[in-house]
């Protein structure tokens, strides 16, 4: 690591549908996919623009916003919990289901662990008290059980379905 000094300048990322977005090396570092690109010997920090054909400008800026906020809030120790919680809630409020899934895709493609963890938790929170039908629709999963097979599972685990309203 010591032999390859970090490029001082910003990294240029080009989303599929917008202008180049400049990010600091510290932010780029958290995107594993970008990081391995930068570490490639043929990469020239000053001139290379990294095209991201699978990521939209909206998704990229959301991910950068998240990383920026969370890397700054780590530095301050006190009273961070409340404001971080608020930021996270606002962050998710702007995302409808499809956008949330697309963002999860983008975070997965860029391999940003912190954002991936956060979004997986957000989806888990969203689906956890929903009906099986909702979950199938949300993930686009096809029910491959026969009526009897599904009934059988519900009967075996009847206690887990107590108080659950089907829609």
């Amino acid at each position: 690591m010591a032999k390859t000094p970090e490029p001082k300048r910003t990294i240029s990322l080009k989303p599929c549908d917008g202008d180049v977005i400049e990010v600091s090396p510290m932010i780029a570092k958290q995107m594993q996919t970008i990081q391995s690109f930068i570490e490639d010997d043929s990469f020239i920090a000053t001139t290379t623009i990294i095209p991201l054909p699978n990521v939209t400008a909206f998704q990229l800026s959301k991910i950068i916003d998240y990383l920026n906020y969370h890397s700054n809030s780590k530095a301050v120790a006190d009273n961070v919990k409340e404001s971080t919680k608020k930021f996270d809630e606002e962050f998710l409020k702007e995302l409808e289901h499809d956008k949330l899934k697309e963002l999860l895709h983008a975070a997965n493609y860029l391999n940003v662990k912190e954002v991936l963890d956060f979004l997986c938790q957000a989806v888990a929170d969203l689906i956890q008290d929903k009906s099986v039908k909702f979950v199938r629709k949300f993930f686009g999963v096809v029910n491959d059980y026969s009526v009897e097979e599904e009934e059988d599972i519900r009967r075996t685990h009847a206690w887990a379905f107590e108080g659950v309203e089907e829609d």
């Binding site: 895709h105 993930f139 491959d144 599972i153």
Partner: peptide, 29 residues
């Protein structure tokens, strides 16, 4: 409509409470 790969669905399900996972056995095989 975006479909999530199975690895991502698995990552999500690691974060769901046990009682709901038991219900979600009904989603598909």
């Amino acid at each position: 409509s975006p479909f999530l790969p199975f690895e991502l669905i698995t990552e999500i399900l690691y974060r769901v409470p046990v009682k709901f996972l038991i219900q979600f056995k009904c989603v598909c095989k």
